[in-house]
Design a protein around this nucleic acid. Structure first.
Lengths: 211, 211
DNA sequence: ACTAACTTACAATGCAGTCAGTAAGTAAGT
DNA sequence: ACTTACTTACTGACTGCATTGTAAGTTAGT
């Protein structure tokens, strides 16, 4: 049996796929993954839903590629390619919160899809599990660097602070999406990140214990 | 035109409706609202999906009643009927975080539905918008009481702290649902709430400014 | 010539909501 | 006490729509 020839994709195809991924992120963000039909994505890039399946095989695989694609293009957008470390990471997170105010679509996509991913058999679940693991680890690393400078070291505290920082950013996004007039996304994120980092770096006693 | 007679519901009906509401919360939590079929809810209470529509009229109205029902039965569960105020509210929030570790189903329902509610035309949107407004106001009130005792008063700080506390609780829930082995829901919530409250009650300078 | 990149048409499923019918309850009149 | 008139609480069958995936055919690039 002759191994059948595999032609390389045509030059425009890569760009076409990127168009589809961008449209899919928009639709999934606006309506959720399960409730965002392929036909609507297809319409936005001027083809039929069967055309999209030709490129991505199935809706599930499309979602996975959408999520990975967003990650890549986020990293591209960074001026400095390397991941910021130490105290720079915290500044980067706050800058991200400010930048996010200008792109509610992407914020909504992540908020909607991350929560949807915890539902039964959701195809995005592995992605988000891994994403949080990696992000927490990066923040833990940044804390560790800063802690070393200051001669302190409490792994448990740092783990909790890392999870809390991501949590507060995500949670504020939901509140902000529900009513942007009531929540200042960026300033509030900055406040909370500082509060949590301060408590991790030089803890004060709980104000809630019996007094 | 003769006004048509309206019989009162039968004695068992109230209990039946509550069964349906409980089943609906479970299904919506597990699969999301749009993706949670009425038939599955019906099956769990031993009737057909048409029976459910007889009681609630439409799926949208069922969702709204489910959310309101959960609120009520939460309040019932409290030993003291009145809303805790001042420092007691913070202790109550932390106790809630500990209690939540034992009821992942309800946690998941709120996490999934609140995020889904920001999507286009979602029937739960009004509920969650209001819910966050009320909860933020309660926390602001608690801060105000505590601040008064200490002779301080910064409305902006308190607003931000209130939103942040809710945000961190919600965000941690998502991370915990994705991987409970990696996040200690209750302890981390307590840590973050304390950190945020401390910074609101006696602020320290940002650790991220140029040094 | 072969294949990528589609389209059109269709199959298969899943789902909310409607409708007519039924059994059992309730109120009112006698 | 019993009947009549009406209602509640459903079921089962069906409609209509939306949606993913597939298969076969068409066009144009290489």
């Amino acid at each position: 049996m002759a191994t059948r020839r595999q032609l390389p994709p045509r030059p425009e195809t890569a760009a076409r796929r990127r168009e589809i991924l961008a449209a899919a992120l928009e639709i999934f963000g606006a309506k959720g993954y399960k409730n965002g039909p392929l036909a609507e994505i297809a319409e936005q890039v001027g083809m039929t839903h069967a055309g999209i399946l030709h490129h991505f095989g199935s809706k599930d695989r499309l979602l996975v590629e959408v999520l990975r694609y967003r990650d890549e293009s986020d990293v591209e957008g960074l001026e400095d390619q390397h991941i910021p470390d130490g105290i720079e990471l915290f500044r980067h997170l706050i800058r991200t919160a400010f930048a996010n105010e200008a792109r509610p679509g992407i914020v909504q996509a992540y908020a909607v899809l991350s929560a949807e991913s915890v539902t039964d058999g959701h195809p995005g679940r592995d992605y988000f599990e891994e994403r949080y693991r990696v992000l927490r680890a990066e923040i833990v690393e940044a804390f560790t660097v800063v802690c070393r400078d200051r001669g302190i070291d409490d792994a448990q505290l740092v783990d909790r602070a890392a999870a809390s920082i991501l949590a507060v950013m995500d949670g504020l996004q939901v509140q902000w999406l529900l009513d942007p007039t009531q929540v200042e996304l960026a300033e509030t994120s900055a406040f909370a990140i500082e509060a949590i980092a301060l408590q991790a770096l030089s803890p004060r006693p709980s104000p809630f214990d019996a007094e």
